[in-house]
């Protein structure tokens, strides 16, 4: 609140175009224009389908991260968690093939395992954070290492591969489509809609906002702060599990390099989308756009050889910063 005096000077004109809401969307449109200019193939239906499908993993995880971050927390363990759950799913399904055969039952059981593990992993993050009164950063940094080691251990340091017998049964969950829209995109959209309803239209979402903006006020407003915070981590875990369910059929494998840095990509998507890293304000649609933006940057870089490969990271970093600058919009009114 220290700068309330200065920021009180926002003008009526500033409200006319809501930069905060439109910023990420405009940045995405700009990226698409750039992509179309760079290569004709960019706007081909195949490429667009690739972009949206690829965005699904990070996007679904980022929807969960929006809850955690809105309620003032952070979860660094999602990438490792995704790798661990993928590994566990593959091991379980490979084992079940012997008894249940390579049918739908095996896949459904694999999915069930994924959901149970995701919810449990989220609950562990949440409970240790709230009950143990330890900063979420440290707790999830710890579980990040644990899950990463577990998947390495399960794979003996190598790669866990899904039995080829079951791949054909499971394959449509990534490669299939519903009414011409790839399944991952449909799932992503459904998760985003669900996330939007939960965050913006329910008492639970409102409580997340309240806790993120001031935990003390939330406590004095008869909100079970610990319970709500734990639930945000459970939602995060569930989202990781959903992302994993559609990730596994893509390559049918998991290794210790699966999901590396996904946590940072998810957090970046959330922040690009306009959610405040310190909590108290979250936007699911912003997150969705943020996730699509991150994928689009990578896609555009793959479609051109104008920029040296060695500079890819720099371009990505630059675009992320510009997108957030646009979205914060404060640069427009430095002084009264």
């Amino acid at each position: 609140m220290g700068n309330s005096g200065r920021s009180a000077g926002r003008t009526a004109a500033g409200r006319f175009i809501d930069f905060k809401a439109m910023g990420p969307f405009m940045a995405l449109v700009a990226l698409f224009v750039l992509g179309a200019l760079i290569n004709d193939a960019f706007l081909s239906s195949g490429n667009l389908s690739n972009i949206f499908t690829r965005s699904a993993f990070i996007g679904i995880i980022a929807v969960g991260a929006t809850f955690v971050i809105t309620a003032g927390g952070i979860d660094l363990s999602v990438g490792s968690m995704a790798a661990f759950i993928s590994g566990a799913m593959i091991v379980v399904m490979n084992t079940l093939i012997a008894t249940l055969g390579a049918g739908v039952e095996t896949v459904l059981l694999g999915i069930a395992v994924s959901v149970v593990l995701g919810v449990a992993a989220g609950a562990i993050n949440g409970l240790v954070t709230t009950r143990g009164k330890i900063e979420a950063f440290i707790v999830t940094l710890g579980t990040m290492g644990i899950y990463r080691s577990l998947v390495t251990y399960m794979a003996d340091g190598g790669t866990l591969s899904l039995d080829f017998a079951i791949r054909d049964t499971y394959r449509p969950l990534y490669y299939g489509d519903i009414l011409g829209i790839p399944v991952p995109v449909v799932v992503f959209f459904a998760v985003a809609v669900g996330g939007y309803v939960l965050l913006n239209m329910t008492p639970f979402g409102r409580k997340c906002f309240a806790i993120g903006s001031n935990e003390q006020v939330a406590r004095y407003s008869a909100i079970h702060v610990d319970r709500i915070k734990t639930l945000t981590y459970v939602i995060q875990g569930l989202c990781v599990s959903i992302a994993t369910i559609i990730y596994v059929p893509r390559l049918g494998s998991a290794s210790s390099s699966t999901g590396v840095l996904w946590e940072l990509e998810a957090i970046a998507a959330v922040i690009i989308g306009g959610t405040m890293l310190k909590g108290g304000y979250g936007r699911i649609w912003g997150t969705v756009i943020g996730a699509i933006m991150l994928t689009t940057i990578g896609n555009i870089l793959n479609l051109t050889d104008v920029i040296s490969n060695y500079l890819n990271g720099a371009v990505q970093g630059l675009i992320i910063i510009v997108a957030v600058l646009l979205q914060r919009g404060d640069w427009r009114r430095k002084k009264n």
């Binding site: 609140m1 329910t202 008492p203 906002f209 309240a210 903006s213 001031n214 003390q216 006020v217 108290g280």
Partner: peptide, 29 residues
């Protein structure tokens, strides 16, 4: 009122109903 009463970064509506939130809908607000 600033430290534990009101959410200063929010508008009036969410502040007003925060304590009695359950009265404004069980699942959807």
């Amino acid at each position: 009122r600033k430290g534990s009463g009101l959410l200063l970064n929010m508008e009036m509506r969410p502040n007003l109903t925060l304590l009695a939130l359950d009265r404004f809908g069980r699942f959807l607000l």
